[in-house]
Amino acid sequence: MINLRAVKAALKQQATHFFVDPQWVIPSIIAPFIFTTVTLFLFSHTGGDLLLYAILGGGVLGMWGNTIQSSSWSIGYDRMNGTLEAIMVTPTSLSSVVLGRCLWNSFIGLLNALAVFLVAQFAFGIDVTLRDPAGFIIALVLTLISLSVLGMVFGAFYVVTRASSALFQMLEFPVYVLSGAVYSLAILPEWTRPFSYVIPATWGAEALKIATFTGYDSLGIGYWGALAILAFTTVIFLALSLRLFTYLEEKAKVSGTLVRY
């Protein structure tokens, strides 16, 4: 179903679009940027590890912010551009194209982590040291993939209608809250836990925190435990998104809404 060459081509295409119009990333990462900067200010009075939470969380927030804002729209862009039909008629599945674009968008969301890191360095003068840099990178890459896959799930709905964008944009902040990216999961109320647990980013953020802070392990599952659950939830969402694409494409091929803008 997923064709790696098409994923790569779509990623490259999205990157080209980005470099032609880089300023358009701002609307998508302004919210995570301000959110994490405010967090930095609030944490600065407490200091210590908390500032690191803000930077690390900033990366997760940035990746998700740009994914939900740009990627879910991916097919909408083709719909508007009139290229959806041209893609549909190729032997490549739409899901591969969307995945490639989502990967690039999540990656660009990392710009936010960089921006927050710079603010932290220059405005607050904090030093960033990671407990386990290699583990951090692995967790970061996997988190990026997991957020892209989550973006794909929502992206699939655009095959049927463009009206979905207004609805999916509302999912940006709930993931900020529930993934616990900038704080410890422990402070979320008990009843919200199940919601947090089904979001792969929660486990990505957990693995990132374990790799960053000495002695951190709020759920007692360890780095590899968090990584394993991250991989597992990502695979589940990938399977779900592929099913959704197949189902919704079929539906659109019956109703003829495929290329209507």
Binding site: F35, V38, T39, L42, F43, H45, T46, L50, Y53, A166, Q169, M170, E172, F173, P174, Y176, V177, V182, Y183, S184, I187, L188
Partner: peptide
């Protein structure tokens, strides 16, 4: 859209402030 966004935005910062203990 405004109401959900506001609610979750408020919740996010409330949790951050709770964690910051300012």
């Amino acid at each position: 859209q405004i109401l959900t966004t506001t609610l979750f935005q408020m919740w996010f910062f409330v949790l951050v402030s709770d964690f910051a203990d300012d």
